[in-house]
């Protein structure tokens, strides 16, 4: 009975590590491009994974003080990428 909570916590920690790993993969795409739109999408995913990480962290620690941050980012996160999308020119190949 007492081992299960510890196990759940361990699983959550592993999840956070996996999220970090996915963020690294996304950064690879962010650096590689090749077009501006690729980087834009990568940034969007990065933001989403950041949100996921914050929520998972809140779940792990029971500390919900980051939740308002998540609300704010989920509301305005799309504004930046939509704005940038209007100015990204088409990729010039590589």
């Amino acid at each position: 009975m007492s081992t299960l909570p510890a196990l759940l916590d361990a699983v959550l920690v592993v999840s956070l590590v996996l999220l970090g790993l996915s963020a690294l993969l996304v950064v690879v795409r962010l650096l590689r491009g090749p077009t501006g739109l690729d980087r834009l999408i990568a940034l969007d995913v990065l933001v989403a994974e950041f949100l996921c990480g914050l929520v998972a962290y809140a779940a792990l620690t029971g500390d919900s003080s980051f939740v308002p941050v998540v609300v704010a980012i989920s509301l305005v996160g799309f504004l930046g990428s939509t704005t940038v999308a209007r100015f990204v020119r088409r990729g010039t190949g590589r």
Binding site: V11, S15, E49, C52
Partner: peptide, 20 residues
């Protein structure tokens, strides 16, 4: 809750792979 989070994280991981 933990299972849901793990599933979400796995989706994010696979999505990052797909991005590449």
């Amino acid at each position: 809750g933990t299972v849901a989070i793990v599933l979400g994280v796995l989706l994010a991981l696979v999505a990052s792979v797909g991005l590449l």
